[in-house]
Structures are given as C-alpha cells and as structure tokens.
C-alpha cells in the first residue's frame, strides 16, 4: 500500500466568531482572530490518497488528475475568497481550520473515482498551525 500526496494552496480571509455569543465573549475566546473586519492566511492543503500502484502505470492515481479535481471542487471555491461570506459550504459554520478541513473532505470525497481511497487531508493555516483529518 502506498500513500501519495498532492499539495495545493489558496489564500483567504476569515474570522472566528460565534454569532450566539456577545462581542466580549468572542474577544475572550478568539482574541485577535475575532476581528470583525477579518484577517487572512495562505492555506496549504495536503491531499493524501492510499492505494496499490496500478501495474500498468505504476500510479496509485495520476496526480495531475488529482490536482485538477482538487482545484475544481475545492481551490476555486476558496481561493481569494472570504470563507465566512463567499463560500457556500461554510455557511452557518464556524470558520476554524478544524471545521474547514472536514467540510473540504465532504466536498472532495464524492468527486474522487471509486477505485481511489482518500486517506488524509492536512490543512496548514500558517507554517506553524495545521490540522489533519482522516474521515472518521
């Protein structure tokens, strides 16, 4: 079994803000991340597939095709966007990277061919902060 990873990136604005809480409570929990006028990041998304290399190609999956699928169903919807305002699949959700990575999984997974297994998504918000999601 081999794991193959494709890295894609996008830039976006967001804020961490719970509309059920007062402004003070949001400030207390999220600090500067609650800035009502937004802040932003360069996000890096690692998409890892798991599989046996195909004997005729040597590929687990053609990474060029993987890149096209990820770009079409994820990156184009997130890049240079405001995650809270512009992204339909984040509507009504808190825009933490934890919630973003699970939402990306749900958007991406149905578009991968049946013979491919999505193993892991790793999402970097900064070079020092990242989350991993294995679909469970």
């Amino acid at each position: 079994m081999v794991y193959i990873t494709r890295i894609e990136h996008f830039n976006a604005a967001h804020k961490l803000y719970n509309p059920d809480w007062s402004e003070e409570k949001n400030d207390e929990v999220y600090g500067r991340c609650a800035n009502k006028n937004w802040h932003g990041h360069n996000f890096e998304l690692y998409v890892t597939l798991k599989g046996e290399p195909d004997p005729s190609t040597g590929f687990v999956f053609d990474v060029k095709k993987l890149s096209i699928i990820v770009k079409e169903h994820v990156i184009e919807r997130l890049d240079h966007k405001n995650l809270n305002v512009d992204v339909d699949f984040m509507k009504g959700k808190l825009c933490s990277i934890e919630n973003l990575v699970t939402a990306i999984w749900n958007e991406l997974e149905p578009h991968l061919p049946a013979e491919v297994q999505l193993h892991c998504l790793k999402l970097y918000e900064t070079p020092r902060i990242f989350v991993e999601y294995y679909g469970d």
């Binding site: 830039n11 976006a12 604005a13 967001h14 937004w38 802040h39 932003g40 990041h41 360069n42 890049d79 240079h80 966007k81 405001n82 305002v85 512009d86 900064t126 070079p127």
Partner: peptide, 12 residues
C-alpha cells in the same frame, strides 16, 4: 482579478 474580491482575501 481575484485580488479585487470586495469581501477581501488574506495572507500570511
């Protein structure tokens, strides 16, 4: 282009 998004985007 995309950098003009009225709702902003962002960077590290």
């Amino acid at each position: 282009g995309k950098c003009n998004n009225p709702h902003f985007h962002g960077h590290n």
